[in-house]
Design a protein around this nucleic acid. Structure first.
Lengths: 225, 225
DNA sequence: CACCTGCTTCGGCATGTGCCGAAACGTCGA
DNA sequence: TCGACGTTTCGGCACATGCCGAAGCAGGTG
């Protein structure tokens, strides 16, 4: 752990509403000029400049100079991760997050399964001792390896790739983790192939089929109304 | 993402040196009473009480009342994760606070370099724009390719192999990333060959030689007491 | 060169917040 | 019931910091 003073210094950079807004926008959108950030935040260019100088000093953003424009972006992926980790701590106001019900129940997150279903699967695997979580990754236990093999996941093949094996991917609608990485992608791919889940016509939404409902019930004891 | 104002509110709870110190202690140690936390922080009980009330309100800690004592602890594992994610963003000071024990300072992790030295090398390369990190891999920039070639790394050969090129390997003693994968192995191999580092007689410990100390100082500006 | 534009630096004002002294509250033990 | 102790609440002070107006700097353009 770093010295508390340094930790506080970094946290206080995010701990200002204006700067937090800038960082949130940079987290979700492309690089922006100082002027754009000022307008979006509703503050004068001087003030924005001061904030950006601090963020730069704290190594939360980096800047690319193009002529008289200065494009700011998040300094590195760690910053994005820290912002997301902090977001999870924000006390929920009234409704947790307003997500349309279908999307909230199940959707794809890049190439793996997210939403209530994705989280339930991860936690079901964990409760049955098939999956173990560490700080930000998952690992299959020996019985877990046999279990996913029954679904048709080829572990040999997965471990070849350069991709992280199984990442704990934080779910923004559930505020809990689901399985990402190579394993997450392979699980989703198999569940589609087994027709336990099916893509909705458009968007990232996913539907649980009748077979899927039965399958999850039988294999992991998961059930839904 | 939550509203930026709420994000800022939560971050600013950590963004005070005194509170950050309390949270750090709670992260590493057992639950403590309000009075203990006050003494450890070197502030009056009233002031500590105010801080703890804020942390409680922000749901970063929870409290257990036992008679006239109040035991505070972190509210949940998400808080610990957020603190650690934030710690990663703290700009590195070159001199570590504590004199590191041998293993902590430098060791091999499979076939690449880990510990304070491994992390410092990775971050030194990154700060100089020689290495870029994405989610779980590293990539050499063009200037980085020239740099490692000077150490005798044969990039042609590395890219032949089936192994992941450069993995971000999380260091358990430092809680930060160092370079793994094929590049990490090649760097370690070259540093041994150049006699910048040497294996300790037994175990995985690694020693920094006088040449190594000079070399890291000159090439990456790293120095140790 | 002059001029516009994007951005930063400087100075002063106002608000926010960390700190402690004083005092109150609740629990425990004599 | 009383006093000791751990903790919280209240009030006021001092410092830190966000804000903007004014001014300065540097790149692009005619």
């Amino acid at each position: 752990m770093p010295h508390p003073i340094d930790l506080a210094l970094t946290a206080s950079l995010i701990g200002d509403a204006t700067r937090a807004g800038m960082l949130s926008r940079l987290l979700e959108g492309p690089a922006r000029t100082a002027g754009e950030l000022a307008r979006e935040a509703g503050i004068s260019p001087q003030t924005a400049s001061g904030h950006l100088a601090k963020l730069l000093e704290g190594n939360l953003v980096r800047v690319e100079v193009q002529g008289r424009h200065r494009y700011y972006r998040l300094a590195n992926p760690d910053v994005a991760r820290a912002l997301e980790a902090l977001s999870l701590l924000v006390p929920t106001r009234v409704a947790p997050v307003r997500v349309p019900e279908p999307l909230r129940f199940a959707r794809t997150c890049y190439d793996h399964l997210a939403g209530t279903l994705g989280v339930a699967m991860a936690e079901g695997l964990e409760q049955r001792g098939l999956l173990e979580s560490s700080e930000d990754t998952y690992a299959l236990t020996p019985s877990g390896e046999r279990f996913v093999a029954k679904w048709g996941v080829d572990l040999e093949e997965l471990s070849q790739g350069r991709r992280a094996f199984a990442r704990r991917c934080l779910d923004w609608s559930e505020r809990r983790a689901h399985v990402g990485g190579a394993l997450g992608a392979a699980l989703a791919e198999r569940l589609f192939a087994l027709r336990w889940i099916a893509r909705r016509p458009e968007g990232r939404g996913v539907r649980l089929t009748v077979e899927g409902r039965r399958g999850f019930e039988k294999s992991l004891g998961l059930s839904w109304p």
